[in-house]
Design a protein around this nucleic acid. Structure first.
Lengths: 233, 233
DNA sequence: TGTGATGTAAACGTCGTACTTTTTACCGCC
DNA sequence: GGCGGTAAAAAGTACGACGTTTACATCACA
């Protein structure tokens, strides 16, 4: 996540956002735009645009005569992809990972059930293809390849559900899975049971068996939650 | 939702956001900042801040030499509270309401189960109080009062789940319930079965019966979905 | 005639400054 | 000690200038 990219204000935004979500500025603390401008060596115009974006994420609140005050965590727009990225990159990554995994465990089973009803033939094919890919790469330390299929699989399910709110969680799931792979001991292959479950979901969706798709996905979710308990008690 | 409120840029933001989410600007169409500035009679500075916010919501994309282009619906940050508000106020309100209700039906049962485990005594008390309030106002065209208790009830459940992602959906649920009440024929009282279910959830949470809390909440969700089918086939 | 290099202008990006508005805090007066 | 007015601090807004990128057209050359 290099932040040097084009756009002067992106650098400031990323740095500030990361710092705030990491808790470097406790709730209620104030920042003055002039200070920020000076610190980053940019014009006040740029800072103001950054503040506007931070404000739209409910991370801060800008008030005259007092400055830009950091809001309490409970007010943040925690569904904003950028906020999620910042928090996953910050200090309370474990907590965040747990929250998101719980969300997954609630949403994905329902999404799978809907997918079983609405998936197009193309989506069914894609699902099977990704499941097979997972099988093929599930042994022999091919974790990176496995990850790609895993992410693609869950994305297809969420998209096939036909619900846009579900579909937009694809990035979150991708982030979670990526994080899990990269933070785990890289020597052990994926759980064979999980692989089987994925194949089963693909089957169930293809056959239009909503109940089974939901149940199998629920088992996948349970596995993900248990895994979290093992890693972070 | 008057938009005249303090802040010159809020007016522009609200107007533009509403127009975009309402589909007045098809995906790919371009807007020029100078045009907007002239149209709203504000400086380009203000427009640029608005564009930044719109950009952070993934509603638009700003590129040099071409202008501000509207993104496809699939790219929007549909979890942003403001985007939700705009869409609920716009033309595809029914579609949006359905998406959100499905999301609710996935999340709330799990949240209720978690609440049964984690709710504090205070939260249990609040839950019972709101449920009783629903009972008390469930007859005699007291829909507005009923609505207040209904919203408070679901908020407490989501908060008591202890999961911040769930907790942040409180506003969404409030929006849905409000919309339902105000768009329905105002003569019929709430479904008595739903009231009973709420009382049951409060009970189950208080007793720590996660399974029952989940099941009852699921029934509430099913009811909400069926209601949608009746209103918008 | 087709293809590639080149130039140009259009739009956003950034900056600095000046001025306005709101809100807080302080000070003096009753 | 309370009350009101005034001053200052900080964000809000405006404007004008210049920088930067890049789509598009034009032209040269094969």
């Amino acid at each position: 996540m290099t932040t040097e990219g084009r756009g002067l204000h992106v650098r400031v935004l990323d740095t500030l956002g990361l710092a705030i979500t990491a808790g470097e500025y406790p709730a209620g603390s104030v920042v003055r735009t002039d200070e920020v401008a000076q610190r980053f060596d940019v014009s006040r115009t740029v800072v103001r645009e950054v503040v506007r974006v931070l404000e739209s994420m409910h991370l801060v609140e800008s008030r005259r005569r007092v400055g830009v005050t950091v809001r309490a965590t409970e007010e943040w727009n925690v569904y904003d992809p950028r906020v999620i990225r910042w928090r996953l990159a910050g200090t309370d990554r474990p907590r965040q990972l747990r929250s998101l995994t719980v969300l997954r465990s609630a949403v994905e089973p329902v999404a799978a059930a809907l997918a079983a009803r609405h998936a197009t033939p193309e989506q069914c094919a894609a699902l099977t293809e990704q499941a097979l890919g997972m099988v093929a790469t599930s042994r022999g330390r091919r974790l990176e390849e496995y990850l790609v299929h895993d992410i693609a699989f869950h994305r297809v399910v969420l998209n096939a559900s036909g619900n846009e709110m579900f579909a937009r969680l694809g990035d979150v799931v991708a982030e979670i899975l990526t994080g899990r792979t990269h933070h785990r001991v890289m020597f052990d292959d994926p759980d064979p049971a999980a692989v089987t479950l994925h194949v089963g979901v693909a089957e169930a969706v293809r056959e239009g068996d909503a109940a089974r798709a939901e149940e199998l996905t629920r088992q996948i979710a349970v596995g993900a939650l248990q895994e979290l308990d093992v890693l972070a008690p």
